[in-house]
Design a protein around this nucleic acid. Structure first.
Lengths: 208, 208
DNA sequence: TTAGTTAGTTATTGCACAATCACCAAGGGA
DNA sequence: TCCCTTGGTGATTGTGCAATAACTAACTAA
């Protein structure tokens, strides 16, 4: 018999086992059986702590949401300029994905897209919050003349998020054959240069 | 008993039923049972025409690849300038996705990512060909001074594909609550303007 | 007309998996 | 010390699904 733990401890053991295994096996091969084996209890023990398997996924989503939110807040607490912060937000996001590689897989999973409406809603909200955060910094950058003011901040944010998501999909399709953050940093630099150029041209600085 | 068809006809009926149902039910709810029902034959009849279920997916991939390739060739046959053609390539891609909405879902499916290595390889190759096509036009645009020459054409192509893929994911997560081609056209215009600006600045044309 | 080929059929198998049931033991208040 | 809450267990059930087996009937070419 497995050692007896408090319910609190077991719940978090189950969530982190689920995240680890969702990466190793793919989100849709994640069965209550393999989670139980990883945690070291019997399969039915899982259902002491989560009424259904979907509930495990919702707890996983909450865990990811908490860590993302913390990373964003961390960037926003720094006393840096808006363009710099946009770069840091994107980098933080890529680092988080690299550290928890199950995340893109979950975004692409049947669980999210078909089985578990609540899971989809949670990730949609999370993506929306990321968009708002970026768009806010873009607005500040435009106000300070560090980024072209001709374009709707929301569209700029969509382009930057598209960069992250396109990268994540390519990373995923390629079986992670390149470094996500390094590749992202290069593309991000390109995009930020493009976004800064006309602002610089307009104010006369940084012209070559 | 279902009407007897030639094997050729049945195969293509099965492929198009699979594409239709992959959209309606989600790619991973696609069972041989529901395909058979849609086509109007018994479930085991499917296995007359495809040795395994994975083989159905490979045929689906070939079908999609053929239609994409045709659409790209169609754009490349027109006597238009490279920047215009880049726009048309992206639009064609978005139209194709909108007309066959199972495509992003398949890209995000367990089938592709976990079960069916051949399927993943086929889509990876397809994405690679799209990238090459775009990068080629970018190179021409740079040669003709219509696009900034400072940036690696491959990176520009990655940004443009990121735009498409990010859009497709957002479309998918949002349950297709916006028009893919219209939204894409707006973002594309933004990105193409950014890419054209410094070229224009360098040659002195189109300066405001 | 008949024989061979091939598109079908019904019945069945075997597996993977979520979920439930009935029962058991650890261990901290009273 | 007793007991009762709670975290565990093994056995089992029901379902969904791909795939196979054994058989049948429709076309086609000689």
């Amino acid at each position: 018999m497995a050692l007896r733990r408090t319910a609190e401890e077991r719940r978090s053991e189950i969530v982190s086992a689920a995240l680890r295994l969702a990466d190793a096996l793919g989100p849709d091969r994640l069965t209550t059986e393999v989670i139980a084996a990883e945690v070291g209890v019997s399969q039915p023990a899982i259902f002491r702590h989560f009424r259904t398997k979907q509930a495990i996924w919702l707890a996983v989503a909450d865990n990811v949401a908490d860590r993302m939110t913390a990373a964003w807040d961390d960037v926003l607490d720094r006393p840096s300029g808006p363009v710099e912060r946009i770069g840091e937000l994107v980098s933080a996001q890529l680092r988080l994905i690299e550290a928890t590689p199950a995340i893109p897989a979950i975004l692409f999973s049947r669980e999210l897209h078909v089985e578990n409406e609540g899971l989809r809603a949670r990730f949609l909200e999370l993506v929306g919050r990321f968009h708002q955060t970026i768009a806010g910094e873009v607005r500040r950058a435009q106000g300070e003349g560090e980024m072209t003011g001709d374009i709707d901040p929301n569209d700029i944010a969509f382009l930057l998020i598209g960069l992250v998501q396109g990268l994540a999909l390519r990373w995923s399709l390629s079986r992670r054959r390149f470094g996500l953050e390094a590749e992202g940093a290069r593309l991000l630099a390109v995009q930020l240069t493009l976004l800064g150029q006309s602002a610089a041209a307009g104010t006369g600085k940084d012209r070559s």
